[in-house]
Amino acid sequence: MLQQYSEQAGGQKIEIHSSNHSFALWRLLLYATADFPAWGDPNSPANSYLSPHYIQKSIEETGVPNLVTSVLADYRGFDTMFETAVVFCAGLACFLLLRNFKQKEENFYRHIPTGVIIQFKKGDKTLPVGKEFEHIDTEWIPYDLIIKTVCRILIPFIQLYALYVVAHGDFSPGGGFQGGVIFGSSLMLYAIAYNLRTLVQRVKEKLLGLFCAIGVLIYAGIGVVCMALGGNFLDYGKLSQILPVDPGHIRAYGMLGVEIGVGITVMAAMVIIYVNIVSIGRHDEGL
């Protein structure tokens, strides 16, 4: 009883302490805002040293109108490469933490035309999955026809839009990160509308892992090719020796290649994280 009481008091004490601390820090930060530049000030320190160079010289130096892309993939190419590597490592960590290869002892199969469910106990018996039978779990719920149909119509357009966002990242808002996330979300929508098994059958786990690595490899590979052609790492200007395009636009093509690598990695990493978390690594029915 006494211990319980003291534990409760300790919990309350922590709460009071932390609220006091965050309140004190809150007041300190608010006090510091007096020295901050005003909202929207064009001459604030953040807007005055490096950023005018990016804005005024980007077209001249890189030939890409979207400044965000030119800074992301050219001026700060190293940073973006390692951010991509972080996304790859996150996908890898999710896989290593959660993936569970142990199969369930019970197997359920549903005969699609009649709706009869067959159960195999402790057996290695399997049925050919196809038009007649499908592999299901105990949490199986019937598909909703409306959701299924709408998603079947929508998913190709979402994927096309994702490809557009990646390919047009140099000229309009967009790029590899955004396009990759949109493409990944279309695959997640597929898993939600049908079920996770359908997605895993359609997009194999090995393929996703391969894509996740290939994206980083494309990014680093373009950098190495630039080095092999006599420039610095990720110096896209040197690519004009092997690509038969207008030298004025060569940096835009280099950035496009890099963005494609980023998009592939982000897409695969998002799907790997989703698939592993919702099914706790078993890749069965899931959500």
Binding site: E83, V86, V87, A90, G91, F177, V181, V266, A269, M270
Partner: peptide
């Protein structure tokens, strides 16, 4: 980049 990395680390 921070948004995408934060989503991945949140995963």
């Amino acid at each position: 980049t921070a948004i995408v990395v934060s989503v991945a680390t949140f995963g």
